[in-house]
Design a protein around this nucleic acid. Structure first.
Lengths: 95, 95
DNA sequence: ATGATAGTTCAAATACTTTTGAACTATCTA
DNA sequence: TAGATAGTTCAAAAGTATTTGAACTATCAT
């Protein structure tokens, strides 16, 4: 996706995803660890149910804030720092 | 407010404020103009009712994203770029 | 003083987000 | 194969956010 193709929609999805205390905690956790972690481990650390975890990871993923890949039973997630950089760090450039 | 006093709450208010298409449009408008504008002018440009405008400006103001001061009947608003810089541009430092 | 303009407040209505538990798929371990 | 574990999906319930119109305050112009 090029800069010219950026829409308000993308922007909004990113800010919506970050506008929640649980999801911001997940982001903090993944940032500290700085490597792939299974959803279950994160969910336990956040003390949320697996259903709630599944919901929040989906929102972060759809906003492009995390990458995910499944290995057998487990889904490993990590921050996609390029998305943070694009929409936050370079906010004024991409507004 | 010092960096040490930053709470999740502030963070969330900023992201919530930006997680709305109308408010993001207001931010774009104020960014382009880059000077104080009366709420009414912005509201007209956004094609929203004055009640809706009042609501959205309040949310932006409470998040610290705009400054406002009243001159007689009119309320003039402008972006508070330091808040954007703090929470967006320097996101990782203040996470 | 009267009438218009800028903005706020309130409460009701609508729309959207999040949580919950049960049922489900797929994988693992014994 | 049976039972456990990781995660998803669904629908209902609960919780929030947004819009609306009417009533209001304060200022402005005649």
């Amino acid at each position: 996706m090029t800069k010219q193709e950026m829409t308000t929609k993308d922007n909004i999805a990113v800010f919506k995803a970050l506008a929640d205390p649980i999801r911001l905690d997940i982001v903090r956790y993944l940032n500290r660890l700085d490597h792939e972690v299974a959803c279950g481990e994160v969910g336990q650390a956040m003390q949320i149910s697996k259903t709630s975890g599944s919901y929040h990871f989906k929102i972060l993923q759809e906003a492009g804030l995390i990458t995910a890949h499944k290995v057998a039973r487990e889904k490993y997630v990590a921050l996609d720092r390029s998305t943070f950089d694009h929409y936050l760090t370079h906010f004024w450039q991409n507004l």
